[in-house]
């Protein structure tokens, strides 16, 4: 009960719960449509989804300021790659929220004659840029951790617990990339790939915040890709991705140690 009260006291937490409900409605609406359910029920679900979406737009008023403040903080990071990704990511998020606020004003009738489609597209474009930058940051962090893990393994160099993945002795020095194996055939490349995959799994397993952030951003990216028509996936898939991403976000709020820092 106490944890619920604490969770409920955060506006971000409420927004994420509403987002989860919104995408659950999207998914449910798609399922009902596929299953040939009553038109009345489908209409109610769509109505509920629209209501959730509009309320979330209201809840996000003023989030541009938070995103700008986050960008101001990210500018001071020492790692230039992180600084670039996070600062531009937050600036794009601020622009996305600004477009979203204009859309909200249009939907509530505060701004008449607003081209909602144009502003919606603009909003999703900024959202897509934000997600691309977030994913770039995730891949960068992942790469750093994998390099670190590979170095640790090289210094320790214990007998491999996976004999099948061990490279021949004369190729040990080239294990960093398959391109460095000019005379070696397909088996060695597959061994290298297997080793890299094992390294990736190890790194992600030992860094749950990075894994969650990567999954969350990967799920989220399908939403603007679909809405912008770059990669149409359909309502059902968008609903499932949105729901998965929202559940992961809720997890990071409940357990702050699962949140990727900075």
């Amino acid at each position: 009960m106490d944890s619920w009260v604490r969770f409920n006291a955060q506006s971000q937490a409420k927004e994420k719960v509403i987002r989860a409900a919104q995408y659950a409605c999207t998914l449910l609406g798609y399922t009902l449509q596929k299953g040939g359910a009553a038109a009345q029920l489908h209409k109610i679900i769509c109505q509920l989804e629209a209501h959730m979406s509009l309320t979330r737009k209201l809840l996000r008023l003023g989030n541009s300021v938070e995103a700008l403040e986050a960008a101001k903080r990210a500018i001071h990071l020492s790692d230039s790659m992180l600084r670039l990704c996070l600062t531009i990511g937050h600036l794009n998020r601020a622009m996305y929220f600004a477009c979203d606020n204009i859309l909200w004003a249009g939907k509530t009738g505060l701004i008449s004659n607003l081209d909602q489609h144009k502003w919606s597209q603009r909003s999703f474009r900024y959202y897509l840029f934000t997600l691309i930058l977030n994913l770039t940051r995730d891949v960068y962090e992942l790469n750093l951790l994998m390099e670190c893990e590979a170095r640790n393994r090289a210094t320790k160099s214990p007998p491999s617990p996976y004999p099948s993945t061990a490279l021949p002795a004369d190729h040990q020095t080239y294990s960093s990339s398959p391109a460095a194996l000019p005379t070696v055939g397909l088996p060695v490349i597959s061994v290298w790939l297997r080793r890299q995959f094992h390294l990736l799994v190890t790194v992600l397993y030992s860094n749950p915040p990075l894994l969650l952030d990567l999954l969350k951003n990967s799920c989220d990216i399908f939403i603007p890709l679909d809405r912008l028509g770059i990669y149409p996936t359909g309502t059902g898939f968008v609903g499932a991705c949105g729901l998965a991403s929202s559940v992961l976000s809720i997890l990071t709020i409940i357990h702050p140690w699962l949140k990727l820092k900075p």
Binding site: W4, V5, I18, H51, L54, T55, L59, L110
Partner: peptide, 19 residues
């Protein structure tokens, strides 16, 4: 219109406040 929108938004935002 804005008043109605705020009222509706607050109703959804207050779900769970019973607890």
């Amino acid at each position: 219109s804005l008043e109605v929108n705020m009222s509706a938004g607050r109703k959804l935002f207050r779900l769970g406040n019973t607890v």
